[in-house]
Design a protein around this nucleic acid. Structure first.
Lengths: 335, 335
DNA sequence: ATGAAAGCGCTAACAC
DNA sequence: GTGTTAGCGCTTTCAT
């Protein structure tokens, strides 16, 4: 049987209270501390997190709800969050919610039963009610790549509006005037599109709603949407995809239609994932400072969990344009 | 405060035992059962997994140790495992071990303290000692995309030897005689290389050790290794990469050296991940029946956890060749 | 500085 | 069929 504090206490010739004290670095005589430590080593004793959690102590476990672990961007995020959490002595329970409010409710409830200390909710978390509920019951929460303007909750994200604005400005600077957007049904997309519209407007360019496509989360859907836009006689010369995965959809659509990228069509992504280097042509994209963002949410959450700070923060980071080979001057402008 | 069985019992006018019984679907009178259920609803009662686990019941949590969540292949695997686990009512605690035995030891120990019911160890798990240790203490374990011939442990994987053999046979059938391999330091690579050598030998082709490259786990390392092989005057006409990520490294190396794929160099991958469709040219690759494999390990592990079966199984699935555009006839053979 | 003992929420004999 | 009660392993108050 696994050794318990009783075994350790007995072996060290002290009471279980004393053992518990050394476990928690409380006041203990140097001598008995040494004996206890010795006994622990000899028995290869590992305290039970369960038992200690039952008495009210935290479990050092964080629930991480994300849309879909199979998405490389999300997976990379998960890895960064995991790393930081481990560094801080926490474990991660990961659940993919598929943008489904039912799953969100299910998993938050489940994880609460398992006494996670807090939640990190990653971009694309749908249910504001759940967030509010967690907040009300004082469950520590932090949002990653997402924020809720009206709610007082910790969050870390990039400035999506600026991102959209800068992407569009860059395309404009290349001479493009006919710029399409491919996004998904998420708040980040909305903000990026606002930035896109702003940039167009400032340059006196009309926004064409038929060039704003929102993909659902089925793989290949973006490819179809871009295909349709490219099929029209009057087609865009540039596509701003709201993430790298969608940008690849756009590349596939262009390839299908035999439209050379970037010569006849510029494509720009968002996220700067591994994918953006691997695809052909390598993707011009907006980089999100992933590592930083992930460390920050974890730290934010842990601060709240450990009660070191009860002020909520909203951290906004700035994205950065990475120019590769999927973008070029507007065709009609060329020599 | 969160309601406990005591609250429920009081409200329903029964004893806590009765409440516990309905919780566990034991013999209870229909009447009191109804009352208890009613009380639970009214109080929005959720049982504490901690407390029940402390009495020896399982936690319905599985520890999933994998090499690196940021690797898209691994992430996809994680997602499948997650799905199946959730279907069966289990949660997943995921830890990336980076092929580092120290991390492996750390996380298994940590998760044992948190009373996970069992472990799934994914391909590339280094430490045989840890596996043996888990086995000895009767901790349920299942291996995914990995197996240990000498140990009696549940495992699910593809037949790597056959995979390597078939990849090589296919390349041979295209006329290639100078075939390089790019692998990583994993048992799966070793088996695939055995298959590769076997196929070469059967065709009377000499194995050239300088064409067998093993990449470490630093990104871009594979690219360098292939670059070196392609730089030699006497270079291979085909590269067998032991996973899609490495195949992309090979594509990048070829692109760098301005060697057209597949015209002057055929490249073949393994895994059939999302990447293989997205890259250019789309990758010919061996498909692992990921979804099946993942469901199976989860089921295998849960069977052991729930004590429904104490026989160990080793499940071997067969990989399947997916032909896309990264492979073609050997240059010198061409019209 | 250390120990005795109550209690965290639940399970499972055992008794009725 | 239902209640009583003794734990599960640990924390923590209160004495000493």
């Amino acid at each position: 049987m696994k050794p318990t504090i009783y075994d350790v206490a007995e072996r060290a010739g002290v009471s279980i209270a004393t053992v518990s004290y050394v476990l928690n670095n409380q006041r203990v005589g140097k001598k008995s501390k040494e004996k206890v430590l010795q006994a622990m080593r000899e028995l290869n004793y590992k305290p039970s997190v369960l038992a200690s959690a039952l008495t009210g102590k935290p479990t050092s476990t964080i629930g991480f709800l994300l849309p879909d672990l199979a998405n490389p961007f999300v997976a990379e995020m998960a890895r960064r969050v995991e790393d930081r959490a481990h560094e801080r002595g926490y474990n991660l329970v990961i659940c993919s919610t598929d943008f489904d409010p039912n799953k969100e409710a299910l998993y938050t409830s489940l994880l609460k039963q398992k006494s996670v200390d807090g939640f990190i909710l990653a971009g694309g978390f749908k249910s504001v009610e759940i967030i509010k509920e967690l907040l009300e019951e004082q469950t520590p929460v932090a949002l990653l790549a997402e924020s809720h303007p009206s709610t007082s909750v910790n969050s870390v994200k990039v400035d999506d509006f600026t991102g959209g604005y800068e992407v569009t400005s860059y395309l404009l600077s290349l001479g493009h005037r006919r710029i399409a957007v491919l996004g998904e049904d998420a708040t980040s997309t909305q903000d990026r599109i606002r930035g896109y519209k702003q940039a167009l407007m400032e340059n006196g360019i009309e926004v064409r709603e038929e060039w704003i496509a929102i993909s659902d989360f089925n793989r290949g859907n973006g490819e179809r949407l871009v295909g349709e836009m490219l099929g029209a006689s009057d087609r865009p010369t540039a596509v701003f995809a709201c993430n790298d995965l969608l940008a690849i959809d756009a590349i596939l659509a262009a390839r299908e239609k035999k439209i050379p990228v970037p010569d006849d069509l510029s494509i720009i992504g968002f996220d700067n994932t591994l994918l953006s280097r691997a695809c052909d042509p390598p993707l011009t994209t907006m980089e999100q400072p992933m590592q930083d963002m992930c460390s920050q949410v974890v730290d934010l959450l842990i601060e709240e969990i450990e009660g070191k700070s009860d002020l909520k923060k909203r951290i906004i980071m700035l994205p950065r344009l990475i120019i590769r080979q999927s973008t070029g001057p507007c065709p009609s402008d060329k020599g």
